[in-house]
């Protein structure tokens, strides 16, 4: 077993152990709540977009958003995430989760374009001097990237102060061999039929994860684009979700989200924007 993998697994194990230790010091159990359905099914229809920071790519339109989740006593499926509740205590819930990395989503909407200039590193683009002969336009398409299956732990906390999540995931599919750790906080304020929930979060992504998705690998470098390696680093995001409940099942939803990419990712020749901005406005129906 390679040592970075060993270290990551040790860290994840320590996290799980620390959560179990905390469980002993937890407060007494909360009063029983009414039973809920195992399934949670919903659909949102409306219009939204998510910008794509990848060069020669298109914005990702969002017209329909499905919510498909199933929660058993321990196992759960939540929109692609498979989870198992390791511990559920009044103060927190510790889950083991397998998921698909979402960075890959940006590489689905790309185009081949004919370019006659060179991409250089650090986000700089240089056209040839007018005295030199114009090079023949060359086809360039952003490289392909694979989906990665990641496994890790998440700890969920909540209270009158809001809700928070701590998470750590590592690639177990041999795709990027990297890891990600992060923390999120959100607070939902409900008044009458209206609710508003601001959220903030920060994440650290390892060099291997970032470099696999956003680096220009040796075999991909050409006269159009030079080799570039991405470091690990911190990114952050903030969002706002609002809902107006029309009936028990139907609500009007408006959301905006801003994600700031890590510096080293933003400077990649494959990246045109240092942020991802998304919004959605529409109606959501929960079955």
């Amino acid at each position: 077993m390679r040592s970075p993998l060993k270290n990551t697994l040790k860290a994840l194990g320590f996290w799980a152990f620390a959560s179990m230790a905390l469980a002993d010091a937890a407060a007494p159990p909360a009063p029983a709540a009414p039973a809920e359905h195992h399934w949670r099914l919903g659909v949102a229809l409306g219009y939204g977009e998510r910008t794509n920071p990848l060069v020669q790519s298109e914005k990702i339109p969002v017209l329909v958003d499905l919510d498909i989740a199933w929660f058993g006593k321990r196992f759960f499926f939540d929109n692609g995430d498979l989870g198992f509740s390791v511990l559920d205590r009044p103060a927190f819930t510790l889950n083991a989760v397998a998921r698909v990395n979402t960075d890959r989503a940006f590489f689905s909407k790309t185009n081949t374009k004919y370019i006659n200039f060179q991409y250089l590193g650090a986000g700089v683009t240089v056209t040839p001097p007018p005295t030199t002969p114009t090079p023949e336009p060359q086809p360039f398409k952003p490289p392909k990237r694979d989906y990665a299956i990641e496994f890790g732990f998440e700890t969920l906390f909540d209270g009158e102060w809001g809700a928070a999540t701590l998470r750590g995931f590592r690639d177990v599919s041999g795709t990027h061999d990297g890891f990600e750790v992060g923390a999120d906080y959100d607070y939902r304020y409900t008044r009458g039929r209206f609710s508003i929930a601001p959220s903030v979060g920060v994440e650290y992504k390892s060099r291997k994860l970032n470099d696999y998705y956003w680096g220009v690998h040796a075999g991909e470098a050409s006269t159009n684009i030079i080799e570039y390696h991405v470091d690990g680093g911190f990114g952050w995001h903030a969002g706002l979700r609002t809902n107006y409940y029309v009936t028990k099942h139907l609500r009007a939803a408006l959301s905006v989200n801003y994600e700031r990419l890590q510096n080293s990712v933003a400077e990649s020749p494959l990246v045109k924007d240092d942020y991802v901005l998304g919004f959605f406005s529409g109606f959501a129906w929960t079955f």
Partner: peptide, 20 residues
């Protein structure tokens, strides 16, 4: 009831765009 006794139901899913 917009909250849940089951914290897992409140976790932020990782849609391309998460609105629900």
């Amino acid at each position: 009831r917009v909250d849940s006794a089951d914290r897992r139901r409140e976790r932020r899913t990782r849609h391309v765009w998460d609105v629900l």
